[in-house]
Amino acid sequence: MLGFVIQRLIQAAAVMAVMSVIVFVGVYAVGNPVDIVIPPDATQDVREEAIRRLGLDLPLWRQYFLFVGGVLQGDFGRSFIYNEPVLSLIAGRAPATIELVLISVLCATVIGVSLGVYAGYRPHAPLARAIMALSVLGFSVPTFWVGLILILTFAVSLGWLPAGGRGETVLILGVRWSFPTLDGLAHIALPALNLALFKMAMMIRLARSGVREIMLTDTIRFARAAGISEATILRRHVLKLIAAPIITVFGLELGSTLAFAVVTETIFSWPGMGKLIIDSITLLDRPVMVAYLILTALLFVTINLLVDLAYAAIDPRVRSGEAR
């Protein structure tokens, strides 16, 4: 197991090194932030001083190595627009995105897996057919359109839930969270539902296909022939065998939802990292853009590493295959 972990850590470090180069070069090749940061009526001396202060007069390779040196010390630079440390700026928006994503992905997984297991266990039942039809709808409808419909229905027409914002927050361990309050839950309900629908449809189809495949195996036939109850078969055989792919998809979807909750946060005016990156792209705030993308890549690499380790813990064949 130790060799498996070391191999995965080396792979993760190599991926992060390559991604840092791609992200840095890609972001710094787009636009000129000087045109936005510096007023158009500024003198040439002011422009040159600003360019020097921002480090934009250095060659690209030197800017990259200065950036890497700062990152290794925990410094991602300062924002051109907000004039704050980038990590502090992102950390201030992170709790809002984290709680939104965790609630949506957890709800999507619990509900989606439950419905998918039922649809796979009773494939010809009317309810199972309705569940699969809804999963197709969840895949087909664009997220931004669903968000607008949710706002028009529950916020504008019915007036049950707020259309945007984060609502009341409470301070827990130095961080502000909105889910412990009723007002915060009311504000998070619509964006979380909007984020969860696509993930729920994916979990339904994944769980359903896994259950259908397992129910046709000799293991289930022998278990039934031995007189084992259906509840025990589901708990000990079906759920255990479909756990590995569900854990893999859960980790990947958690990372992708954290990274790309931009549309939902924009529609519902949710003050998270997605809205920050949109504003940074608009204003060509390069340090924020680079830091966000690097941290997103690190998030994906970390989640993939944890998923690999969980997968290896569940299925010893993974470890033995890597050893060979």
Rank of each mutant, 00 (worst) to 15 (best):
G251F: 04
A226Q: 08
Y311N: 11
W270V: 07
R224T: 15
V211H: 05
R286Q: 15
I267Q: 04
L241M: 12
L216S: 13
Y311S: 14
T232P: 02
I246C: 11
D279C: 02
I242N: 05
L284G: 06
A244K: 09
V307C: 04
S269W: 05
A244E: 08
S256L: 05
G272L: 02
N304Y: 00
R224I: 05
R286S: 12
V318G: 11
A244V: 12
E322L: 14
W270A: 05
I228K: 04
T266N: 13
I303S: 03
F300A: 05
F260P: 03
A313P: 00
A261Q: 05
S320K: 12
I233R: 07
I277F: 03
I214L: 01
V249L: 12
A226G: 15
R319S: 09
L305T: 08
K275H: 11
V290S: 11
D285V: 00
G255M: 02
L234M: 15
L283I: 00
P271E: 05
R319M: 09
L254H: 02
T232L: 10
W270Q: 06
S320E: 13
T257D: 08
R212F: 02
E265D: 04
A312S: 07
I303Q: 04
I314S: 12
I214G: 07
L258K: 00
L309S: 03
G274W: 03
M273F: 02
D279K: 09
A244D: 03
E230W: 00
L298R: 00
A323V: 13
I267W: 01
D279L: 10
P271M: 06
F268L: 05
S256M: 11
L283S: 14
A312I: 12
R319K: 14
V318P: 01
T266A: 12
V307M: 04
A323I: 14
A323S: 08
L299K: 02
T282P: 05
L309D: 05
F250W: 04
R212Y: 04
A231N: 06
I314Q: 11
V318R: 01
G255D: 02
F250S: 12
F268K: 05
V263Q: 10
A310K: 10
G210W: 00
